[in-house]
Design a binder for these strands. Structure first.
Length: 598
RNA sequence: AGACCCAUAGUUUAACGGAAAAACGCUUGGCUUCGAACCAAGUAGAUGCGGGUUCAAAUCCUGCUGGGUCUUCCA
């Protein structure tokens, strides 16, 4: 069934042909939602027709409007303002649209991705510190994109890469060796990632001191950074690790183990689950094979120093080293191997990397290299790049320990949700366990929503005060609308209303609140598709807010369950219940749950 | 030095090349209740600056200014 919008486009195209004799492809005709300060449901933009020199847009609009009313039975009326032709559909059409939607079990899904597989890599931390606010934005994006793709019929596979070896973890290991006194998460009561992160910060502090001393002796900065004892120690440790030195490997396993254990908790609390994990330590060697292959095929070359290099100047990028002169691999080397691993395992059509925009260049290079190698998956690669999260105090730096830890943050918002809930006192009769669950859902909802509502590519400011706001354009606002609906559902069960069916005769005309709400629900599918095409969860987040606002207006209007006519009550109730489903669906795409009461 | 990204109300954010929209804040009004974490009303802008393309530019092109990132045999 073609949508009403396509119907109008096609009719308009025909009308322009018969009345003016001009050919305009239906799909090029712009139809948009009518702005709320004007009368109408959809607006056809007439300005572009001006190029046919047919006269004033107003006149064309009038003429076209008259023809469309004749041609399209769903259209009831029209008005023209400048070059905008506003069309109103018959109320009956909206009513029957809604009746169909209610019966449609597939209403909140599409099948545009059927038969296609997408691998989504996200989170991907260095295993030397706790996950922080930046990761949280990443996780919400990655999780949501995965869910949005699934809702559109794609097979979406969430994966996570652990950068589990190299200098970062070595710094924590070295510092622990020096000053750790055999501390463990158990002995200190610290979560494993925090303990390891503490030593990482300690290391940086110590290194800075050493460098400062060397600078005093007149050494220049670069030299000093290299010559510092701690720095030297890391180089040794890296070599020992590569050589498989048992003691080093054991410490590495142990400390990473602490971190994984802690991450598991955090992932669970956030509700994310990965289908596949990749470990830098397992693949970093294998990237070399790909590099070798490129070298043999003459796509890469060896420079004077003996390192393997690719020249990307043909695609407006620089030269890039792919393998060090000593034969060891680089960050990009391992990404070559992982890309291949993903393809071998999943034969995906698309592969998405959710990574911060500071790595834009890296991914340009990576994708360019894979294209040169003519890999079958090269065309489906996409870097979902997002902006950094800033704090009012400035940029987060994990080396300086100025990050906002996810676990701490969640506790903080949960506490705020608790205070607000208690202040409002609407939770009588709930058990301690239920209350705790509720605070968690609300706090998490507020936090996730705050991060999800901003366009991914934009840098965003995280103000701890505002982000845990519970009023206005927030997660709890939407959750609140949902609990109102849940409450209606409970009440309705006690009433004896006629059940809602498509045949139920409406005895009252559709009012403004009802109509706006149905129109908003009408947008769901198109929006879900757009979110999948643009990999943009913010579209869903903002839609959910608008839907909740429309519902609240409707709710504040004439009574739902106690309308004068029972059939009207049934209809309004069905509209509420369906809105509740839509809110729940939309929020679930963002990993946000809805409570029954709050 | 070069490349890329960003700049919208006091603040945080929206807006397929098509009528600049919300929230927070501030000022009011609405609970003898289908839940006031709500609703309604008021308040605020020549979309950083200058050109250009277009019937139409916050959006595209271009030159500035300001902020950020990258261009390392770091990850």
């Amino acid at each position: 069934m073609s949508s009403i919008i396509q119907t109008i486009q096609q009719a308009a195209s025909r009308a322009m042909h018969t009345t003016y004799g001009v050919e305009i492809a239906a799909e090029t005709i712009v139809i948009q939602e009518t702005k709320k300060e004007f009368d109408g449901d959809f607006t056809l933009v007439v300005f572009p027709f001006a190029r046919f020199r047919l006269g004033k847009p107003e006149i064309i609009g009038e003429t076209l409007g008259r023809v469309l009313v004749e041609l399209v039975p769903e259209i009831e009326d029209f008005n023209v303002i400048k070059g905008f032709l506003n069309l109103s559909l018959k109320a009956d059409w909206w009513v029957s649209f809604f009746a169909n939607a209610v019966q449609d079990e597939q209403y909140f899904t599409t099948n545009i991705g059927e038969g296609k597989t997408v691998v989504v890599e996200y989170c991907s931390p260095n295993t030397n510190k706790p996950l922080h606010l930046g990761h949280l934005r990443n996780i919400i994006l990655g999780y949501s994109v995965t869910e949005i793709l699934k809702a559109n019929g794609y097979t979406a596979i969430p994966t996570c890469l652990f950068n589990d070896r190299g200098t970062n973890i070595s710094k924590s290991m070295y510092s622990w060796q020096q000053d750790g006194n055999g501390d463990t998460p158990e002995s200190t009561g610290l979560k494993g990632d925090k303990l390891v992160g503490k030593y990482y910060v300690d290391y940086s502090v110590k290194l800075a001191e050493e460098v400062a001393q060397l600078l005093d002796t007149g050494m220049d900065r670069k030299e000093a950074e290299k010559a510092a004892p701690s720095s030297q120690a890391i180089q040794e440790m890296l070599i020992k690790w590569e050589e498989g030195d048992p003691e080093t490997r054991e410490l590495w396993e142990t400390m990473n183990g602490w971190v994984y254990e802690a991450y598991k908790d955090t992932f669970q609390r956030l509700g994310v689950e990965f289908q596949q994990f990749y470990y830098e330590s397992k693949v970093y060697q294998r990237g070399r094979e790909t590099v070798q292959e490129g070298l043999e095929r003459g796509i890469f070359f060896k420079d004077d120093a003996g390192s393997v290099v690719v020249d990307n100047s043909d695609v407006k990028l620089d030269k890039k080293v792919l393998l060090r002169s000593n034969g060891t691999s680089l960050y990009i080397t391992q990404d070559l191997a992982i890309a291949a691993d993903k393809y071998n395992e999943f034969h995906m059509d698309k592969s998405i990397y959710v990574v911060g925009d500071e790595q834009n260049y890296h991914f340009q290079v990576l994708f360019a290299v894979l294209k040169k190698l003519q890999k079958p998956y090269a065309e489906g690669l996409f870097h979902l790049s997002y902006g950094m999260v800033d704090l009012p105090s400035g940029k987060m730096k994990s080396r300086e320990g100025t990050t906002v830890d996810i676990d701490d943050l969640v506790e903080e918002v949960k506490q705020k949700a608790k205070e607000e809930t208690q202040r409002l006192g609407k939770t009588e009769g709930m058990t301690e366990a239920e209350l705790d669950q509720l605070y968690e859902v609300l706090g998490m909802g507020g936090l996730k929503y705050f991060l999800a509502k901003v366009d991914p590519k934009k840098r965003m400011l995280f103000n701890p005060e505002e982000s845990v706001d519970l009023q206005g354009h927030t997660g709890p606002f939407i959750q609140y609308s949902s609990t109102r609906i849940a409450s209606l559902v409970r009440k309705q069960a006690e009433l004896d209303l006629p059940s809602y069916t498509a045949e139920l005769a409406l005895e009252d005309p559709l009012n403004e609140g009802e109509r706006s709400l149905i129109k908003r629900l009408f947008q769901y599918k198109a929006l879900l598709q757009e979110a999948a095409h643009t990999y943009n969860p913010a579209l869903i987040a903002n839609y959910a807010y608008e839907l909740a606002r429309d519902f609240n207006r409707f709710y504040q209007g004439p009574k739902i369950l106690q309308a004068e006519k029972p059939n009207t009550s049934s209809f309004r109730f069905a509209l509420s219940a369906f809105t509740g489903k839509a809110l729940k669906e939309a929020l679930s795409l963002l990993g946000i749950a809805v409570p029954d009461r709050m």
